[in-house]
């Protein structure tokens, strides 16, 4: 296995193109190294992207959104007060990936490219409408995050293509997001179910919503019907029930060593209600509007 430390994305692409064997890109490495040790993959060329200028930066974009470098770790995101204020759901999803030690290395880009439907950072990014900038032999292009994974361990990235950054749209007013996952233990488990909810309110009513479900389909699932169920409502009990029904219907889980299909369907409904509540309350807290009755 040859180890490379390119100083630019162009060099990285060139090395990958010229490899002739299997290649792996290295950001945090918390998935790649585990697969390396288990003998699941031994790349001929391992291309470490962490020495490319700017990859470790979190930058406010001109339109008020965010540009997150591919070597930005969960720990960094958690310490970035402005990013947390705008996108608490995106950050809390990333921070659930592994232990404190893993947080010191793991990156959302790596989490996305690993292609696991249970990746904790991906539902939040999908619900937020995040996009990724890509560079490859065919030049630069951009995709919505939900367009990247195609199934367990597989993505739409073409051979030699690299994700160069993740961009989050401007947060805008009266908006809030949240991520919840179910695991048997309080930490260190892979999500049995993950749910991200991103809301925009108009007063008490939900003006816009995006809901993404993790670990209940071959990829993270954008549940449009579930979102539609709560648009125009003040997220009252009827709306929450409709939300849960729609989300459970959208879920298409398998049974595996971490949970049965029935259990995942049922938990999807439970978590989507709770996550929606949290997102809704976060908007209220941000905009200072106190709800009359206890929700």
């Amino acid at each position: 296995m040859r180890y490379h430390r390119p100083e630019s994305f162009e060099d990285a692409v060139a090395i990958a193109a010229g490899s002739g064997g299997t290649t792996r890109f290295l950001a945090g490495g918390t998935d790649v190294l585990v697969q390396l040790r288990a003998g699941l993959v031994t790349p001929d060329d391992l291309i470490d992207l962490k020495h490319i200028p700017g990859v470790a930066e979190i930058v406010r974009t001109a339109d008020g959104g965010w540009r997150i470098g591919i070597a930005v770790t969960g720990a960094q995101m958690g310490r970035h007060a402005d990013l947390v204020r705008d996108w608490p759901g995106v950050v809390e999803g990333m921070q659930l990936v592994g232990s404190t030690q893993v947080q010191g290395r793991a990156t959302p880009v790596g989490n996305l490219c690993n292609g696991s439907p249970a990746a904790d950072s991906v539902p939040g990014l999908v619900a937020a409408g995040a996009r990724v900038d890509i560079l490859g032999p065919g030049g630069p292009r951009s995709l919505a995050v939900e367009e990247v994974p195609t199934g367990p361990g597989r993505t739409t990235l073409r051979p030699g293509e690299i994700i160069t950054a993740i961009t989050l749209p401007p947060r805008g007013a009266q908006a809030g997001d949240a991520y919840l996952r179910f695991t048997p233990r309080t930490e260190m488990d892979i999500a049995v179910v993950g749910v991200a909810v991103n809301l925009r309110l108009d007063g008490e009513r939900i003006a816009a919503a995006r809901i993404a479900l993790g670990a209940v389909a071959p990829t993270v699932l954008l549940a449009d019907a579930a979102a539609a169920a709560i648009i125009g409502t003040p997220l009252d009990d009827a709306a929450l029930t409709a939300l849960a029904t729609a989300a459970t219907a959208a879920a298409n889980p398998i049974s595996d060593k971490r949970g049965t299909a029935d259990f995942r369907k049922e938990i999807t409904g439970v978590l989507v209600r709770r996550a929606a509540r949290i997102a809704y309350d976060r908007v209220q807290a941000r905009t200072g509007i106190q709800q009359g009755e206890d929700k």
């Binding site: 180890y3 040790r37 290395r105």
Partner: peptide, 23 residues
């Protein structure tokens, strides 16, 4: 060897990491 137990914890440039998940 998979970042699940923490017995290999070190600090790298001040950041707490598993040294089994760093080359």
């Amino acid at each position: 060897g998979t970042g699940d137990c923490g017995a290999c914890s070190v600090q790298m440039d001040g950041v707490l990491v598993c040294s089994c998940l760093v080359l």
